[in-house]
Design a protein around this nucleic acid. Structure first.
Lengths: 109, 109
DNA sequence: CAGGGCGTTCACAAGCCGTTTACCTCGGGG
DNA sequence: CCCCGAGGTAAACGGCTTGTGAACGCCCTG
């Protein structure tokens, strides 16, 4: 099947090390807040899989979101902003309208 | 070309996973809208069987279409367009004039 | 006590999608 | 030929979803 993404060298030059509370690009750490790293880690833990907001929220916050909670969207937006700056041209987080978000290690599809 | 046949994978390299809100070609998700995936799923659930527009509509929309409703045709058209791009040369959805549509996993007959 | 960082919420703009309509083409009968 | 029904598809439209800047409050630190 598809190659497993190890911590050593994922596609796109982005390394996520949750146990070290860090995400690295070319060895340089992104300055992410705790929540931002949690959301990124959760997304990246299921590459190419569409995650609903509910799944993401449950994974990171540990409970169900209240109706109309936009927290996930806000964090995705902030993550994209920081990733865009660190990896210009890469689109790692894809939106699936009406469903949720998908992380794609190779910024394609 | 000769791919391994996994459980979810019909001929043509198209994998439909409604519970994951996704349809995959070579592991890459097609960007289908919710409705498009519903129509494709319904068609593909009855391979080689001609489904009338009424059947399809009832299956996806959960009610009977109003007279002269063209929604099904529009979605079939959009699906064909996206499938054509992802799987050039394949004709998975066949028209049966005056009756309805038929999904053929092996793009023949 | 002032300042700053962060998580959360709010508000509004922008964009996408479902639905409907309109226009075209094709074939069969008269 | 002309008419008519069936189907393909582009495009209009309105509503809902999403992107994102900003405000607010909490907590920590100096």
């Amino acid at each position: 099947m598809a190659d497993q993404v190890h911590e050593g060298r994922p596609a796109g030059g982005l390394e996520i090390r949750p146990e070290e509370h860090a995400a690295l690009v070319d060895g340089r750490p992104l300055s992410l807040t705790v929540r931002e790293l949690q959301v990124l880690t959760s997304l990246a833990a299921h590459p190419q899989r569409i995650m609903t907001r509910e799944e993401l929220y449950a994974d990171v916050w540990g409970r169900a979101p209240r109706r109309d909670d936009r927290s996930v969207d806000v964090y995705v937006s902030r993550l994209r902003s920081k990733l865009r700056e660190a990896l210009p041209g890469c689109e790692l987080i894809h939106t699936h309208n009406g469903i949720g978000y998908r992380y794609s290690p190779d910024d394609q599809a």
